[in-house]
């Protein structure tokens, strides 16, 4: 599962993309919903948990927490940006 990172999430992770393993090689539970993905990423990058609004897109559409995700989906983390 590929995750595109935007705004501050790119700075937090330190890279414009992130790959989440789809088979459980690490023993960690693989996220099946948007909410689980947020928790999964938050464990590795605790700074992400501090964002009060973080939009998640699945295949270029805004996704709610309960939406299911699978290995072929393209996910994007889109935090608000404020510069002008």
């Amino acid at each position: 599962m590929t995750i595109l990172l935007f705004g501050i999430t790119k700075d937090i992770v330190g890279s414009p993309t992130l790959s989440v393993p789809t088979a459980s090689v690490t023993g960690r539970k693989i996220p099946k919903t948007v909410k689980e993905l947020k928790q999964f990423l938050g464990e590795t990058y605790p700074e992400l948990n501090k964002l009060s609004s973080l939009a998640i897109a699945v295949n270029n559409s805004y996704a709610e927490d309960e939406q299911l995700i699978n290995a072929y989906d393209e996910i994007a983390l889109i935090p608000p940006v404020s510069g002008g």
Partner: peptide, 12 residues
């Protein structure tokens, strides 16, 4: 898109 306003130091 963003229901809640970020706190002061959250986003530079």
């Amino acid at each position: 898109l963003y229901p809640a306003m970020p706190a002061g130091n959250e986003v530079p």
